Amino acid sequence: MGSYDMTVPAGRRPAGRAAGLASLALTLLMALSGCVGPSWSEADYQEKVANTAEAARSAVQTARLVVEAAEEDKAPGPYTARALSDAETAVTSVATHIGSVQPPTMQSTELRSRVTSLLTDCRTTLADLRIAARDGRFHELARLAEPLPRLAARLKRLQELRPT
């Protein structure tokens, strides 16, 4: 990849699987972020945490695909930087929402601590990726993305808290 330049030639749009998935992830995030509000029961709070984890996992998985595409020279530098920035913004948004929900029980308070800590880890990793991409350090993305599979797995476990 070359140096970072936010301009995209007229008529040229990033294409491919990563672009479609990034769009889908952000749409899902917007739909799910509206699901957070006051929580009156343990089950309701677990549902909110599961929705939060699902939205954050979508953003993390999108970042993984973008990094993979960048490694294979299938994603232009400006698209890579923008998609990673969007993933970070998405996780920040859901973290803000779930952080504003009052946990109804002590068990929920412990769960809140778990999810907010995990979201902080996700945000830190995504910020590191965004910064490297914007600085044109595309050769560092794979190394910086190493925590993403583990973070995605942890988010998936929180998704499974959804009451049945």
Rank of each mutant, 00 (worst) to 15 (best):
R123P: 08
L155F: 07
S85Q: 13
A22S: 10
N51E: 05
A83H: 08
R143M: 03
D135R: 13
P14R: 06
E71W: 00
L118H: 09
M6A: 07
T27Q: 10
A127F: 10
P104E: 04
S23P: 00
Q102H: 02
A43F: 04
A22C: 11
T109H: 05
T120G: 10
A55Y: 01
R143D: 12
R64W: 02
V36F: 06
T7G: 06
E88L: 09
Y79T: 05
R114P: 00
E42H: 15
F138Y: 13
E71H: 00
R137Q: 15
L111F: 07
P38R: 13
A10Y: 04
R154Y: 07
E54P: 00
Q102L: 03
A25I: 07
A50I: 04
R13I: 04
C35R: 12
R134Q: 15
E42G: 10
A83Q: 13
N51F: 12
T92N: 14
R112K: 12
A31E: 14
A70D: 04
L32S: 11
R114F: 00
A56Q: 05
E160V: 06
M30E: 10
L26F: 09
L151G: 04
P147W: 02
S117Y: 00
L158R: 09
A59C: 09
I131P: 09
A87W: 09
T116W: 06
L111W: 08
T89F: 13
A15H: 04
R123I: 15
S93H: 14
V115F: 07
F138K: 01
Q102Y: 01
E160K: 10
T124Y: 08
R157E: 15
A10G: 00
M1N: 07
A50C: 08
S39F: 02
E72Q: 15
V36K: 02
R64E: 11
Y4G: 05
T27S: 12
M30Y: 01
A22F: 03
L126Y: 12
E160R: 12
V91E: 08
S85V: 07
E110W: 05
R13Y: 08
K74C: 02
P14F: 12
G136T: 08
Y79I: 02
E54S: 11
R137M: 11
A153V: 05
D121M: 08
A133C: 07
A59P: 14
E88C: 07
P78T: 09
R13L: 08
T62M: 12
S39I: 02
D86R: 10
V36A: 05
R64D: 03
D44E: 11
E47M: 05
P163V: 03
P38G: 15
D128S: 14
Q61I: 01
E54I: 11
S39G: 06
R57T: 08
G20W: 12
L126H: 12
S3V: 02
A145G: 10
L84K: 01
M106Q: 06
T92R: 15
A81L: 09
S108G: 14
